[in-house]
């Protein structure tokens, strides 16, 4: 799958990523977590080839990604960045069709139409397929963009803060969709998440970053621990198990734990 070897990224003399070496497990959901400015998004951008790394290599199935033609890369890795104020007058269907661009350069085949249909189905967007993007809510628009990314039919998906500015319902819908992508279709998903609870409950693997370096990584159970999170965020945590998963409480952890 995708592996990083001694990745460095600097802007001028400001280092953003420092000697990051990682192997992301195939067929799993990996969350990148950490405080603001830890370099999570930069790392994702480097993997997406939106930013060149200063030093080090990124390998996709053993091949240096710089050597893969950009058009081929788009058939193997799909990227979704944060959707900012987007005011193009396109329908949801138009947008999802862009996901087929790497294959057909815009001239849609019957195959493409089928993939578009499936992607819309997968996220339950059929009812909105003829709606214009500028008339949708932020959450619906985010779903439409995710559908486009899914329509790229890549083994690897890179999602940069897909939950940003979403209400709770849409955030849960998106995370469930990501989970199903992995479980039902065997795709690998790497995403940047701010909400520790979404990361803990929906991913298999967690990479914690701090100040441009990997702080810790591994299966959720190993990384999401009270001690580790406290070291990562500089906040006291209380992890409360429940039948469905667990909740990381950092709002008002009990006093005794804070003193520990």
């Amino acid at each position: 799958m995708i592996t990083l070897e001694h990745l460095h990224k600097a802007y001028g003399d400001k280092t953003v990523l420092e000697d990051v070496s990682l192997a992301f497990p195939a067929g799993q959901v990996t969350s990148l977590i950490g405080p603001n400015g830890a370099g999570k998004s930069t790392l994702l951008m480097c993997m997406a080839r939106l930013l060149p790394a200063s030093r080090g290599r990124i390998l996709l199935d053993g091949q240096d990604i710089g050597r893969i033609a950009i058009a081929d890369y788009a058939r193997r890795v799909a990227t979704l960045r944060q959707v900012l104020d987007f005011n193009l007058r396109l329908t949801v269907e138009d947008l999802v069709a862009f996901g087929r661009f790497p294959y057909s350069r815009g001239l849609l085949t019957a195959d493409d139409h089928q993939v578009i249909d499936e992607s819309l189905d997968f996220l339950g967007l059929q009812a909105l397929r003829r709606a214009y993007l500028d008339e949708l809510s932020g959450g619906q628009r985010q779903m439409a963009f995710l559908a486009m990314t899914i329509a790229q039919r890549t083994d690897l998906l890179l999602l940069d803060e897909p939950l940003n500015n979403l209400d709770m319902k849409h955030a849960v819908q998106i995370m469930q969709a990501i989970r199903r992508l992995c479980d039902e279709q065997g795709r690998t998903v790497i995403l940047v998440v701010h909400d520790i609870n979404f990361a803990a409950n929906y991913s298999d693997h967690v990479v914690a970053m701090k100040q441009g370096a990997v702080h810790s990584h591994g299966p959720v159970a190993e990384v999401v621990t009270e001690a580790n999170l406290r070291a990562l965020f500089g906040l006291a945590f209380e992890i409360l198990p429940s039948a469905q998963g667990f909740v990381c409480n950092y709002f008002n952890p009990s006093l005794s734990r804070e003193l520990v």
């Binding site: 939106l50 979704l80 960045r81 862009f98 661009f101 350069r105």
Partner: peptide
């Protein structure tokens, strides 16, 4: 190139993600 222009309208990042140089 109208289809390429459509993709370019999505912005640099999305255009690259969709395989455009």
């Amino acid at each position: 190139g109208t289809r390429v222009l459509d993709v370019l309208a999505l912005g640099r990042d999305q255009a690259i993600a969709l395989g455009l140089d």
